[in-house]
Design a binder for these strands. Structure first.
Length: 113
DNA sequence: GCGTTGACGAGGA
DNA sequence: GTCCTCGCCAACG
C-alpha cells in the first residue's frame, strides 16, 4: 500500500462501496487522511475508467449528492441509470435521500479501529 | 522543474 | 435559501 499512489488508494476505498450505497469525494479524501484534497479524489477517478477492476465511480458523488462526474461516463445518463439500477433514486442528476444512502468509510470500516 | 488542471469543500456576502 | 471566491494538493504536459 505504501507503493500505492494517492489515486490508487482512492480506488481501493471506492471499490469497497457496497451496492446501493453512495459516498462523497470529501469523505473518501478524509478517510485517506487528506480531507483537504477532496479534489484529488475526483481527479483520481478520472483514471477509474481504465482502472482494473472497474471502479463504481457512479457511487461517488459530491457532498451535495449531485452527479457531478456523470459527464465523464460513456454517456451522461449512464451514471444515473447505474444508480437507479442499484435502487438509488436519481432526480435531476441529484440523488434522492442522499443522506439515507450515504456510506461513510470512516464508520462502515470502523470495525478494525 | 514549473504552471495548469480539476468528478470538491467550506466560508462569506 | 442561493451565488461567488478562496484554498487544497497530487497528477499531467
Amino acid at each position: 500500500m505504501d507503493n500505492a499512489s494517492f489515486y490508487e488508494q482512492v480506488f481501493q476505498v471506492v471499490a469497497l462501496i457496497p451496492n446501493g450505497r453512495v459516498t462523497s469525494y470529501g469523505v473518501i479524501a478524509a478517510y485517506l487522511g487528506a480531507k483537504s484534497s477532496s479534489r484529488m479524489v475526483g481527479y483520481a477517478m478520472n483514471d477509474a475508467v481504465k482502472a482494473m477492476p472497474p471502479i463504481p465511480a457512479h457511487r461517488v458523488v459530491n457532498r451535495n449528492g449531485l452527479l457531478t462526474g456523470k459527464f465523464h461516463f460513456s454517456t451522461p445518463t449512464k451514471m444515473q441509470e447505474l444508480l437507479e439500477a442499484e435502487g438509488v433514486k436519481v432526480i435531476d442528476d441529484k440523488i434522492v435521500n442522499f443522506k439515507k444512502f450515504f456510506w461513510d468509510p470512516s464508520v462502515e470500516l470502523d470495525l478494525e479501529r
